[in-house]
């Protein structure tokens, strides 16, 4: 086994997910198979190979910076238009500090 039930529960906590027991069991098996599959990357010698987060450099393209100029903001009404619980000019959340 590449991943244990306890590890699945730990990862779920890190990801802010609450999984039902069936989901934990299902994911443990499936993640195990997927992690087993990705093991094949270990066959490759990558010593001295630079890891890339992005294709920019190798493609020779350049992502230009924009002017650092003030833009008109989206505005309070639109910013709050999807708020599950707006409160004046804020997003209300359950009490954090007792």
């Amino acid at each position: 086994m590449k991943i244990t039930i306890a590890e699945v529960e730990h990862v779920a906590r890190l990801a802010r997910l609450e999984l039902a027991e069936e989901e934990i069991n299902l994911f443990a098996g499936q993640m195990d198979a997927i992690l087993e599959y990705v093991e094949k990357l270990k066959e490759l010698n990558t010593e001295g190979i630079v890891p890339i987060a992005h294709v920019e450099v190798l493609m020779g393209s350049v992502f230009p910076f924009r002017e650092d100029a003030v833009q008109s903001p989206i505005g309070l009404d639109r910013a709050l238009s999807n708020a599950p619980k707006p409160a004046g000019s804020f997003f209300a959340v359950p009490k954090v500090i007792e």
Partner: peptide, 18 residues
């Protein structure tokens, strides 16, 4: 998050978080 996401999204979040 647990109510809103479906099973494939949860699975990929789990693999990615791991």
């Amino acid at each position: 998050r647990s109510e809103g996401f479906g099973v494939e999204v949860k699975r990929r979040i789990m693999i990615g978080t791991y």
